[in-house]
Design a protein around this nucleic acid. Sequence first.
DNA 1: AACAAGGGTTTAG
DNA 2: TCATCTAAACCCTTGTT
Length: 386
Amino acid sequence: MSLNNATVSQRIVIAVDLDYFFAQCEEVRRPELKDKPVVVCVYSGRTDTSGAVSTANYMARGLGVKSGIPIMTAKKILVKHPEAIFLPVDHEYYDSVSERVMQIVRGTSPLFEQVSIDEAFVDVSSISHSDFDLAGNIAKNLKKEILTEEKLTCSIGVGPNKLIAKMGADYKKPDGLTILPPEKVNSFLKDLPVGKLIGIGAKTEKKMEALGIGTIYDLSNFGANVLAEHFGKNLGPHFKRIAQGIDNDPVSPRPIEQLSRIITLKQDANSFSFEDQIRPLVTDLSKRLQALKLKAKVIGIIAITSELKTKNRAKTLESSTDSYDEILMISRTLFHDFFNSGQDHETNRIRRAGIRVSGLEKTTEEFRKEGVKSEQQGTLTNFLGA
DNA sequence: AACAAGGGTTTAG
DNA sequence: TCATCTAAACCCTTGTT
């Protein structure tokens, strides 16, 4: 057993973050794009320029084009750069590239967790013998392999946990490598603004500023109970821990918790007049559920109003489903109720509409056996209770 | 007190 | 002036056991 060891083995995690992923994928298949601003866009289809920027390459970023801004704004910024390239997102292509890259990353060690299409963690404690120099070499080799196999650069952070590894990966990009052994963590964190911590965004940063918290060091010294008052009993203490560089979250794959699809409507609506537009979403969700061998216990709708406020309605089912017909029926009812439940009809026009399924349960053989067991138990309980 | 259900907010990429 | 899409984690309220 590891109890023989005098000291508990030092954990080492690497975070891999593919640089400006969608735009870099486009550069890979069209190398002539490399010396031009490249802007990958999600077109909503309302007008020929409506939509938002998904990702831009570093040349476009240098000129002020950031993720999330309206496409029209990006066009204005780049008006003096007629060589700039605007492309629609091509998810199928990025998925296929991502799949191959993730296969390479997984090759480092099976202690692997993919966080998104372009990010993953690997726990290299064992294969590096808890040696940060060795872990740094593993990271270098991984960067080299991703570059030679797929012509892609990435940024990597090496740290004692996922939080520090991720912050290391963010620290220098693109094509960065930041190694943060435990003895360097405090000086690395100390003077950074709290907003640099993973999980602290604009809103939280503002609230913290009002409390006199500016740097991560300020936060690490702040009273946990006061933080709990302002941010909640879990989140408050969590913020204090991450400010101290503490993160015990293991590198381990997460089960899928929810699936959703949302679209921008052709025009704003104040009644359920857009069933034609949501049917394809339901088709997609039911197919994905079936492909994943999952069924959903909860069906929900998402409505984003003309004022861009998000509204949700959901129904928990008696028994879980992956059926197109059932998901469509429930969605129809939820949308009808949404529009008919006495809102001030004028403010309740919606711009975007979507479907979400959650409460996902496996439908594999062994799980079905478990399910039957607990169902029988439930029946017995009901019988005894009655 | 513990838990489920439903809805909102924030974050991240 | 224009404002995408997907997913997770957490918060709060209400109602039940």
